[in-house]
Design a protein around this nucleic acid. Structure first.
Lengths: 195, 195
DNA sequence: TCTAGAGTTTACACTGTGTCAATTGACAAA
DNA sequence: TTTGTCAATTGACACAGTGTAAACTCTAGA
């Protein structure tokens, strides 16, 4: 039966999330994931062709479970550009901690793994669109600070929101997610909003 | 003679820089470095105990060759906090492209290599001090924007200047180093300087 | 009862790091 | 000239982790 198949697949994805979050995405091997899933290492390859494919599938699974679309809704429904920007940061800042383990693993795999690099880049490009949309909303309100083209502003916003920045502020500097969100809002407003 | 010893060591370091810069720090193996140095792979281990130690030594060698201290002098000699901040960004923005290959290799090695992670962290802590000093100068001029503690401001400045951010803006967004420097100055001034 | 599918065990190829032992070649001191 | 030392060489190997392959087991449906 294929239902058994899907159950096992899901079990692997759940186990991957669990163990990755537990270890902050570092040093987790296929055999660890297999053990956590309660199957043999080789059986994992019956469901995912490679480590990169597993990690990629895990991020997508995570987006589904965490209901990415619902979380994005508020910023998309925002009335003005300023509000949209703030809500987007709010969304992202609270989302990152929940996907950090998986994201970090994918990030670290970039070294050796071409496919992992591509998967990560794909994710980041999706987020780039979100940044661009928020900046565009600001721009069409005539609220984008002078000196910025929408393109450049979106590039900078995108870069500021990159996972390693969140990681640095929380892990190295000891910030809470709350502090991170509030601070990013301040920086972004002072940087991009007119006046 | 030990002079021969040192010559070979330097030859390895030079070769490491060359090949790392050439490949953007990705996928360079000990055997590649050995070939580039004109010696056997095993001979590299006569001079450096591990890959991490070699990479660490290479960054330090690079700092020497590029005369890190001379480059830091202008920002340290700045009259006011605002000027100091600008000159620090100027320094760092022009320095990163010159150490990118080595830095990236060290960054990528963090996955598997404990020692590489420690080496990188050490480097970053040194830079953190530079950020803190610049912010302190601004603060003691009474020019730090309201809402910031020096600690928080330094944390954010430090994070903004992290290598992956430069990497993202140049590699993914197609910015030049010039653009990067100018933009970072703008962002930092709007964010941290009063008024 | 036969078959297909999922999973298991065992084994192995491959890559890259790091270690070890035996050897060579050069140079310096006795 | 001999001896000792030191850098470097070659070749072999241990170890970890990914991915592949083959042969076997167990279950459930036709």
């Amino acid at each position: 039966m294929s239902s058994q198949n899907i159950e096992t697949r899901t079990r692997i994805l759940e186990a991957t999330v669990r163990i990755l979050e537990e270890h902050g995405g570092r040093g987790v091997r296929m055999s660890d994931i297999a053990r956590e899933s309660g199957i043999s290492r080789q059986a994992v390859y019956l469901h995912f062709a490679s480590r990169a494919e597993l990690l990629d599938a895990t991020t997508k699974y995570r987006d589904e479970v965490l209901d990415l679309d619902r979380r994005l809704a508020p910023s998309r429904a925002a009335k003005g550009g300023v509000e949209r920007l703030a809500l987007y940061i709010e969304f992202w800042g609270n989302y990152v901690p929940e996907i950090y383990g998986v994201a970090k693993a994918l990030l670290l795999a970039q070294d050796t793994d071409e496919a992992a690099a591509a998967a990560w880049q794909g994710r980041m490009l999706a987020m780039r669109d979100g940044c661009r949309a928020a900046i565009d909303a600001l721009h069409s309100d005539g609220q984008l600070a002078p000196g910025w083209t929408p393109k450049n502003a979106a590039d900078v916003l995108w870069t500021m929101l990159l996972v390693p920045n969140w990681e640095n502020l929380t892990a190295e500097c000891g910030w809470s997610t709350q502090q991170y969100v509030r601070c990013m809002k301040t920086v972004v407003e002072r940087t991009f909003v007119k006046e």
